[in-house]
Amino acid sequence: MKDEPNFDCQQAIDSLRGRFAFDFVSIALVQSAADQFVLTWQYASGNLNERYRRIVLHSGKGIAGMVFKTGKPMIIQNIAEELDPNDLFNYPIIVAEQLQTVCAVPLWKESRVDGVLLVGFREGNRLTTALLDEFRQYIDPSFGPYFTRELIEE
């Protein structure tokens, strides 16, 4: 995203949130090798507070870390049913933003994952098949230098 001067990341996620009525949209970007390739949430739309800015994730940790490490999307339809409440500390963005449904997809640049796009709702079971299909078709052309390989495993 930094390589594309005409691409406005904040405008892109604001537009995405408005188009699909998501409660929260955020992008985590990988930081340099000097920072041990940690991920930080750089852009957010619909955030309740600024806590997302202080979250630092290592590869394989948290939603962004797992999506970054595997290069595969992650969908949690109902946080309360699918995650153990004692494990929520491993998902700080869910706690900070009070999310109940999330979808995180890798953002590829050339041949590697360079970031993670997370969308979510503050109510459970809000990601319908129709919404995910429409989201999948919309996402690639709207994210400038980034693309997703697949949104949902076929």
Rank of each mutant, 00 (worst) to 15 (best):
T101F: 01
G18W: 03
N86C: 15
N47G: 00
Q77I: 00
G65L: 02
A28P: 02
D84H: 01
L29G: 09
I63S: 11
Y138N: 11
V119I: 03
S15H: 08
E123G: 03
R122S: 12
I139F: 04
N86H: 14
L118H: 04
Q42M: 13
H58D: 11
N47H: 10
G124R: 03
I152M: 14
F121T: 05
D114I: 03
L99K: 03
F20C: 04
L39D: 06
D3P: 06
Q42D: 10
N90Y: 05
P73T: 13
L127H: 07
V113H: 01
L88R: 01
D35I: 01
S32P: 09
G115I: 07
A34N: 08
A44G: 03
F121M: 04
Q36T: 11
W108I: 13
I75S: 08
L118W: 00
T101V: 03
F135I: 04
P106L: 02
L117P: 05
P5T: 04
Q42P: 08
A130C: 13
R136E: 11
S32M: 08
A44Y: 07
S26F: 02
I55A: 04
N90K: 10
L99S: 13
I13M: 05
K61N: 05
K69L: 05
N6E: 10
V25H: 06
E153T: 14
H58K: 11
A44M: 09
D35A: 01
I93Y: 01
R53E: 14
N125S: 13
L88V: 12
L39K: 02
E153S: 15
W108A: 12
M74F: 03
E134D: 15
L29C: 07
T148M: 09
P141N: 02
A12I: 04
K2S: 13
D35F: 01
P145D: 05
P5D: 06
P106E: 07
A96E: 13
F7R: 08
F135L: 11
N49L: 12
D114G: 10
E123Q: 07
R53I: 15
I139A: 07
G120Q: 04
I139H: 04
V105G: 06
P145L: 09
A33K: 02
A64R: 00
P73H: 10
G124C: 09
L88W: 04
D133L: 15
I139P: 06
E110F: 12
V105K: 06
L16Q: 05
T70K: 03
R126P: 09
F89A: 12
A104C: 08
V95E: 13
D35R: 00
R149Q: 09
V116T: 04
K69Q: 15
L48S: 03
T148Q: 07
R54Q: 15
M66Y: 04
L127S: 09
R149L: 10
A12E: 04
V119F: 02
N49W: 09
N125W: 02
L83G: 15
Q10F: 10
C9W: 06
L83C: 14
V25M: 02
S26C: 15
R149W: 06
K69R: 05
L127T: 09
R126K: 15
A33L: 11
L131E: 13
K109Q: 14
S59A: 12
P85H: 07
S111K: 11
